[in-house]
Amino acid sequence: MHFTPITPYHYLLLSAALFSVGVIGVMVRRNIIILFMSIELMFNAVNINLVAFAALYRHEVGQAFAVFVIAVAAAEAAVGLGIILAFYRNKETLNIDEMNLMKG
């Protein structure tokens, strides 16, 4: 069996597909915790992209950026989950369709 060699395009396509799965999760699900997990999936897609380019150009700059993305993702998860807990304490729900205090 013969395979074409794995180029960075393969990794970029994987990253695009993973990002789209994350977008579908954000668009379709109503549980806000699952929404946050979909956002983490999208962060991972971006990181695969950065690391693939780092491997292509044989330089670690892409990986340095991925480290920053992970740091921001950690901060986002901590603050976001804090907001979820505070909201749950007030409204007893995690459904984003019931989060309409600002009439959005």
Binding site: I33, M37, A78, L81, T93, L94
Partner: peptide, 23 residues
């Protein structure tokens, strides 16, 4: 780290009705 944080929140919020019940 992050996944344990998610697990904590999933277990802390004790939903009486399904989170996706209302659409």
């Amino acid at each position: 780290g992050i996944v344990v944080l998610y697990l904590f929140v999933v277990m802390l919020v004790n939903l009486k009705r399904g989170p996706e019940a209302h659409q």
